[in-house]
Computed example of a mutant assay.
Amino acid sequence: MPDIAYAVSIVSQFMHDPMTLEAVYQILRYLKSAPGKGILYTRYDHLVRSLTYVDWVGSKQDRRSTSGYCTLMSGNLVTWRSKMQTIVSRSTAEAEYRTMALGIWELQWLRMLLSNISLPISGPFMLHCDNQSTMHITNNPVFYERTEHIEVDGHFIGEKIHNNEFHLVHTWTEEQLADIFTKSLHKNRVNFICNKLGLFDVYALT
C-alpha cells in the first residue's frame, strides 16, 4: 500500500538488525487498525501522469537521498515506489534527475504495457516535478555540460521531453503527492495525500 511504502523501504534496509522487529510490529499494528483500507478506482480522465519527488541527503546514516514516484492512469494510482538512491547526490538537481529518470522509465513501461494489450494512448505523458531549477536545466540542453555529474540522466530526460514523449509539468510542493514515498510525514499530511491518491477505508464510508 502507498501509505506504508516508505516505512517498508526503510525497515528492509535493516533486516539484519533485531531492533528492526519493533518497527515491523508498528507497521503490522497500523495495518490491523484499518483492515478495510484500500485504493478506490474511479473513471476520471484518460491522462497518464507520474509525480516524482526526492528527499535530498535525507538519510542520517549515509546522507543518501530517497526517491519517490507514483503513476496515475485516468486519475487512479497504478504504480508507486520508494527507493533509496545507490550513491550520494552532490546537489538537489542530481538527486531530482535520478528520480525523474525513474519516473520516465515507469511511464515508458506503462506505455508499452498499454500498447501490448491494445490500449495505446496517444500524445505525451505528464511528468510532474516541483523543482523549477531542474526543469530549467531540462529545457536548456546547453546546461548539461556545466553539470557533468548529471549529464547522462540530463540527456536522457531532455531527449524524451524534446521528442514530445513526455510533458514536464511544474507542481507546487504542497500538491506533490509523491512526498509520501520519501520521508515520514505528519498524520494530517499523510491523510491529505492518501485521499488524493484514492486511498479510502471502505468501513469508514459506511
Rank of each mutant, 00 (worst) to 15 (best):
M1H: 04
A5Y: 00
A5S: 15
I10W: 00
I10G: 05
V11H: 05
V11G: 00
S12H: 08
F14M: 12
H16T: 15
H16L: 10
H16Q: 10
P18Y: 08
T20F: 13
E22L: 14
E22Q: 15
Y25F: 08
Q26S: 12
R29H: 14
Y30F: 10
Y30D: 05
K32T: 01
S33G: 14
A34K: 15
P35I: 03
G36I: 04
G36T: 02
T42D: 00
T42G: 04
L51A: 10
T52N: 12
V54M: 00
V54C: 13
V54H: 06
V54R: 05
W56T: 06
S59W: 05
S59D: 14
K60V: 15
R63E: 04
S65H: 03
T66A: 09
S67P: 12
S67K: 06
G68K: 04
G68A: 03
G68D: 07
L72S: 03
L72E: 02
L72W: 07
L72D: 03
S74I: 11
G75M: 02
S82M: 07
M84C: 11
Q85H: 15
T86I: 04
V88L: 09
R90N: 09
R90K: 14
S91D: 10
S91N: 05
S91K: 05
T92D: 06
A93Y: 05
E94G: 06
E96T: 14
R98K: 15
R98T: 04
T99K: 12
M100W: 00
M100Q: 11
A101G: 03
L102A: 13
W105D: 10
L107S: 10
L107C: 07
Q108G: 12
W109T: 09
L110F: 13
R111A: 03
M112C: 09
M112H: 12
L113W: 07
L114I: 04
S115G: 04
S115R: 15
N116I: 06
I117P: 07
S118Y: 08
P120I: 07
I121H: 01
I121L: 09
S122M: 09
F125Y: 06
M126S: 11
C129S: 13
D130A: 01
T134L: 05
M135Q: 12
M135S: 14
I137Q: 04
N139S: 13
N140T: 08
P141K: 12
R146T: 08
R146W: 06
T147R: 10
H149L: 08
D153Q: 07
G154D: 01
G154C: 02
H155Q: 09
H155D: 10
I157T: 03
E159M: 02
N164Q: 15
N164D: 15
E165Y: 02
F166G: 00
F166H: 11
F166A: 11
H167V: 08
L168Y: 01
L168Q: 12
V169Y: 06
T171N: 06
T171F: 02
W172M: 01
W172F: 03
E174H: 13
T182C: 06
T182I: 02
T182R: 08
K183R: 14
L185E: 00
H186T: 01
K187C: 03
N188F: 01
R189V: 07
V190C: 06
N191R: 08
I193Q: 00
C194E: 00
N195W: 02
L197R: 00
G198P: 06
F200D: 02
D201V: 00
D201F: 02
D201S: 13
V202G: 03
A204G: 02
A204T: 14
L205G: 08
T206R: 14
